[in-house]
């Protein structure tokens, strides 16, 4: 703890404070944009994975298999490789090959895949009797999925998204490789490359603080919605 404070103090004394603040801003921007878009797309994909599976509300084997294959293929690719591999597509979609926009595009794709699994797992954990109760009341399948199942799975979903935040933060650091800025770039260019470990540790300190805050927030929110 002391070490991290010393690192921050040294970063300040070495005149990197402005750069650090800017890096924090870039990181938060990338993470927020990715979570917003990827989190929503992943929610839809996760609902689709859950609903199209065997015995699901919208049982559809071909669609399930296709989605499942897509998620299983993209998710395990190391992000640094994926990031560089999708460059042509990134340029086609965003018009940039470097910078924040260029980084956010592959991050959104991977985030969508990861979210879809988290959402699927949270929903699989709900009691199938809930679906039956909703259907027996005359609720449509879509209604059951969106308005009955999501509230039932809210606590694991919140914890899942908090977990996801950390994964996206991790990805954003690697986005430094294509000049997206952020804490990853900061640590590499001012710390590692200049043999200034204090600067590297300063970015570490910031990341630890951010993660702790988000996780604590997620935990308390999940506790509040969990009535089990």
């Amino acid at each position: 703890m002391t070490l991290l404070l010393v690192a921050l103090e040294n970063t300040w004394r070495d005149g990197y404070t402005d750069e650090l603040v800017k890096a924090i801003g870039q990181t938060l921007l990338m993470v927020a944009a990715t979570l917003l878009v990827g989190g929503l797309l992943g929610l839809v994909a996760g609902l689709a994975l859950y609903a199209t599976r065997r015995g699901g509300l919208f049982k559809n084997r071909p669609l399930f298999l296709a989605l499942n294959f897509l998620v299983n293929t993209i998710r395990p690719i190391p992000f640094i490789i994926f990031l560089t591999a999708v460059r042509p597509l990134t340029i086609a979609v965003t018009g940039h090959s470097v910078g924040v926009e260029a980084a956010v595009f592959p991050m959104v794709i991977v985030c969508t895949m990861a979210t879809s699994r988290l959402v699927e797992q949270s929903l699989v954990g709900t009691d199938p009797g809930i679906v039956e109760a909703g259907r027996a009341m005359g609720a449509s399948r879509l209604h059951v999925l969106v308005f009955i199942l999501i509230p039932e799975a809210l606590a694991p979903l919140i914890l899942g998204y908090a977990f996801l935040f950390i994964g996206v933060l991790d990805m954003s650091a690697m986005a430094g490789a294509i000049g997206a800025g952020g804490l990853g770039t900061f640590a590499l260019s001012y710390g590692y490359n200049k043999y200034n470990d204090y600067v590297t540790w300063a970015s570490l300190a910031i990341i630890i603080v951010i993660v702790q805050i988000v996780q604590a927030f997620g935990n308390s929110l999940a506790r509040r919605v969990l009535h089990k």
Binding site: D127, G129, I130, E132, A133, A136, L154
Partner: peptide, 11 residues
């Protein structure tokens, strides 16, 4: 309809 496991909405 009522059920053996009640199937109430826990949330």
């Amino acid at each position: 309809m009522i059920f053996q496991q009640f199937n109430l909405f826990s949330a």
